[in-house]
């Protein structure tokens, strides 16, 4: 029995050690080394890569990533909660609506991001319609800015927020709302005093699920933000490809993970078993 279990765990252990843990440890090691003359890394060890993170230029990028990720999470929460509430109250159609929310999630993220590129560009549907209607004379700069990135992130990760929210609202006893009404609470008061507090674990879980990919976003800022909106993900990619400064890229990576952990650990604890 014990032997069986050992062999069952072995492949995952080996794979995760080789292709997840070892690479991460290499990044940790690189972050403490000096950039080589032809890319790569060299001795001596230094903490300089980490002090450079506080350079205004890079600090601004990290801060922008953080702000965009937080705002995107907040928007998902604001947009997702009423959706989850609506689905949980639609009786027999619940499953249909739930599938409608998850379906885009099953579609390619790249395709969904491209869909916005197609809509927002100067000759896209929105600008074409606006010009035709005579509201504007020249196309609005909808693409390649912070707003477009934010829109892309919210669009991409909204389902991640709706699902855990729905799960917590759904497992709430319907009798609770009846009891609240029975005790004199109007629908809105019942929502605020009963549903909302009980949905908290779902909110925390959803926030974790949305915040992580937003904070590390690479694709969305690159496609919808153009060259202007650089987030931490783009900075890392740039250091490992064009700039060939692997030690600094490693330091940014670790910083990104540290921020995630710092914000997420308390949240994960409060999300109970929703995650």
């Amino acid at each position: 029995m014990k032997q069986l279990r050992f062999w069952m765990l072995a492949p995952a252990r080996v794979w995760m050690a080789l292709f997840f843990a070892a690479p991460l440890l290499i990044v940790v090691a690189y972050s403490l080394l000096t950039r080589g003359d032809y890319g790569g890394v060299e001795q001596p060890t230094t903490l300089e890569n980490f002090t450079r993170l506080f350079d205004p230029l890079y600090g601004a990028i990290l801060l922008r990533s953080l702000v965009i990720a937080i705002v995107a999470t907040a928007f998902c929460l604001l947009l997702g909660f009423p959706m989850a509430l609506f689905i949980s109250r639609s009786g027999r159609r619940k499953n249909l609506y739930l599938q409608l929310v998850t379906l885009p999630f099953w579609t390619s993220f790249l395709v969904r991001t491209y869909a916005w590129l197609f809509l927002l560009r100067d000759t896209g549907l929105i600008n074409t319609l606006l010009i035709k209607a005579g509201i504007v004379s020249s196309p609005l700069p909808l693409l390649y800015n912070n707003g477009a990135v934010l829109l892309g992130l919210v669009y991409g990760y909204l389902p991640f927020m709706v699902l855990p929210l729905y799960a917590t609202i759904e497992r709430m006893e319907p009798a609770l709302l009846e009891a609240a009404a029975d005790l004199g609470a109007r629908p809105f008061a019942a929502l605020r005093r009963v549903t909302l507090p009980l949905a908290l674990p779902g909110m925390f879980a959803g926030s974790v699920l949305v915040f992580i990919p937003c904070m590390g976003a690479y694709l969305t800022p690159d496609l919808l933000g153009g060259g202007k909106t650089v987030m931490a993900g783009n900075l890392i990619q740039n250091q490992f490809t064009t700039a060939r400064d692997w030690p600094f890229g490693s330091a940014v990576s670790l910083m990104l993970m540290a921020i995630n952990m710092l914000l997420l650990l308390p949240m994960m604890r409060r999300s109970e078993d929703v995650l």
């Binding site: 690479p23 991460l24 290499i26 990044v27 990919p213 993900g233 890392i236 990104l256 952990m261």
Partner: peptide
């Protein structure tokens, strides 16, 4: 622990760490 950590590691970090590896 490592499975959960792999889930919360940003894709870009997973990517560059594997590249370095």
């Amino acid at each position: 622990g490592s499975l959960y950590l792999s889930l919360v590691t940003p894709e870009i970090v997973t990517g560059i760490s594997l590249l370095a590896f």
